[in-house]
Simulated scan of single mutants.
Amino acid sequence: MAAGESDPLASLLRTLERTRDTEQAVEIAKDIGAVIGLPYPSCIADYSDPMLTRAPDGRTYAELFGWGADFREDWERNRLNLISPIANVCRYSTRPFVWRSKDIVTMSPLTSDTRGKHWHLTPERQIAGGLTIPVHLPLGRVASMSWVARTEARPFEQVLEDYSTQLRLAAILFLDIVAQQDMDAPTVTAGTGDTGLSAREVECLSWVALGKTDGEIATIINRSVPTVRFHLENAMKKLNVHNRTQAAALAAQAGILGSLLQ
């Protein structure tokens, strides 16, 4: 963009930042798509959920964005959240990325088994491609915001280069609005709030998360097996769960254990 040229997305982003109205946010996302030449937005608020993200009125955001019933039904019926190559990238990256439907159908994990035949963003269904912004949310949730096109009017890479910063902000702001709709809905969850886990309890849970037995943990930390079990039982009580596996999973999800990737 040339120096002094007004940013065509600036006004839309300011409005998106101020609004908490779902329908207005949806219209802004569509307007952003019109500006960048990718007119079909898409939002997934939690890739672990096989059901499409829903607005407060019960309709899916996919419906509000104008995606046809066939696309929406395919996603839920075929549990595409589990095999989506877009989701796979989002789980391991925070960087916006471009994809094309003619290439994405050959990407892992679709080729791992016959479920790939159910993938719905294909050239045969008049999808050229788009770009996706991964968004990592509290409690380990992986989300994304995408803008999709039926034809590649401009190279997608050029669109990303021109608008990457604005689109990242738009994705975060939109998903803030999506998350807000659940803020007032009370839910019963394990381990909410400050857990107060000790350093030794965190250490033991980290080794549980990595698949170690109580005996192996005892050897690693140079303590007795009863001592390891004492720390794990204390952690389970603080997290309000019933077994060591659940405690480790919850602590990992809450970010208490840090990265478990070696």
Rank of each mutant, 00 (worst) to 15 (best):
A3V: 14
G4R: 05
G4A: 08
D7L: 05
D7S: 04
P8D: 05
L12V: 04
L13Y: 07
L13P: 08
R14E: 11
T15W: 01
T19S: 07
R20P: 00
A25Q: 01
I28K: 01
A34K: 15
V35C: 02
L38A: 11
P39M: 00
Y40T: 09
I44G: 03
Y47L: 15
S48W: 02
M51H: 14
T53A: 02
R54T: 07
T60R: 00
E63A: 10
E63T: 08
G66E: 02
W67H: 13
G68V: 07
D70R: 15
E76Q: 09
E76W: 01
R77L: 13
N78S: 11
N78R: 11
R79G: 04
L80N: 03
L82I: 06
I83C: 06
P96K: 04
P96L: 01
V98L: 05
S101K: 03
V105I: 14
V105L: 09
V105F: 04
M107A: 15
P109G: 07
R115V: 08
G116S: 05
K117G: 10
H120A: 12
H120P: 11
P123Q: 02
G129S: 07
V135D: 04
P138N: 06
L139N: 14
V142W: 02
V142G: 06
S144K: 06
S144L: 12
S146Y: 00
W147H: 13
T151M: 12
E152V: 01
R154Y: 10
F156W: 00
V159H: 00
L160C: 00
D162K: 01
R168A: 09
F174G: 02
F174L: 12
D176Y: 13
I177N: 03
M183W: 15
M183K: 15
D184A: 13
P186D: 09
T189G: 13
A190Y: 11
A190Q: 12
T192E: 15
D194I: 12
T195Y: 11
S198G: 08
A199M: 09
S206F: 09
W207Q: 13
L210E: 06
G211V: 11
I217F: 01
T219W: 10
I220Q: 08
I221A: 03
T227V: 01
V228D: 02
H231W: 10
E233A: 14
E233P: 06
M236S: 04
K237D: 11
K238M: 00
N240W: 10
T245C: 05
A247S: 06
A249K: 11
L250V: 09
A252L: 07
A252S: 13
A254V: 02
L257H: 01
G258C: 10
L260H: 03
